Simulated scan of single mutants.
Amino acid sequence: MTAATVGSRILAALARVRDPELDEPITTLGFVASASIGADGTAEVHLRLPTYFCAPNFAYLMVADAYDAVSALDEVRRTTVILDDHFASGAINDGVAARSGFVGSFEGEAVDELDSLRADFLRKAVLAGTDTVCRRLRLSPAHLAAVVLGDLPPSEALDRLRRRRRELGLPAGDDDLLLIDPLTGAPIGADSVPLHLRKARLTRTSLDANTGICRGMLRHRYSTDGEGEEAL
């Protein structure tokens, strides 16, 4: 397998890593500055973020997830993921390399790992995905409350919603309801549908706005369009 082929596989692996807040791949956001592999199978990935002060917990999750995604490739013997130009780069880079966890990486500062934070963002992604899917439906609240996933036409948005629900351990089969509480998985009753959809719409709007802001800041900081790097 050529280095170019392995490089493509590394980028494909990184495309499965998401900004936890924005629920978008770090590759399409332009957060991957470079990715390469040496003849000895050592992969080196450089990540960058829109600002020097991006939240360290979000940054840690992306660096750790990138490390895991690349390390899982059979062709890779050793992985180094480096976050550049960030106030906590040293702690994050060293902690991920040592597999210290978030608490170990920020000893004396962090008091808990980030599983609950990741779950919170996944629930927001489920709400936002629900809005995307429901926008195309023109049904009454009573009808929407009874719609199951198998009733919906295939689409990328629906596939994405199913994946996010599965990540949370929520039902995502054809016979499972479209409208559920992303925290408990309980059905949304007809009377609660309008409020649920408003929450879903606000969540989607917030994610879209934050994504636009991050793209703009990255563009200003690194003179990139924030849509991924053609040179990679």
Rank of each mutant, 00 (worst) to 15 (best):
V81G: 04
L22T: 11
A39N: 09
A231N: 02
P194K: 05
F102E: 01
R16L: 11
A209P: 01
A15T: 12
R99Q: 12
S206W: 11
F121D: 00
G189C: 02
S8V: 03
E229A: 10
R118Y: 00
I188Y: 09
L114W: 04
L158R: 02
S89V: 03
K199L: 15
L14E: 08
D85F: 02
N93P: 04
L139M: 15
A91N: 10
T80C: 01
R160M: 07
L202K: 12
A55D: 15
A13Q: 08
I92A: 05
P20C: 04
E229V: 07
H86C: 03
L29Q: 06
M1Q: 11
F87G: 00
T205A: 15
R219M: 09
T2R: 11
Y67G: 00
P194A: 05
T79Y: 01
A200D: 08
R164T: 12
A142D: 10
A64N: 13
S223R: 13
G212I: 10
I26M: 13
P50M: 02
Y222G: 04
A3V: 14
S140G: 02
A186K: 10
T132N: 02
I10A: 07
V76L: 03
H46K: 12
K199N: 14
D208T: 14
R215Y: 05
P20H: 07
E227Q: 13
L11W: 08
D112N: 12
K199Q: 15
A91I: 00
D84Q: 13
T132P: 00
L149G: 04
S105C: 06
R138M: 09
D176R: 00
L47R: 06
T2D: 15
L158I: 09
E229Q: 10
G150T: 06
F87N: 02
A97Q: 09
R165W: 10
A59G: 03
H220P: 00
I92V: 09
R18D: 14
T184M: 07
V126D: 10
M217A: 13
A110T: 11
P20L: 11
T5Q: 14
D174N: 13
S8E: 15
R16T: 15
R219L: 02
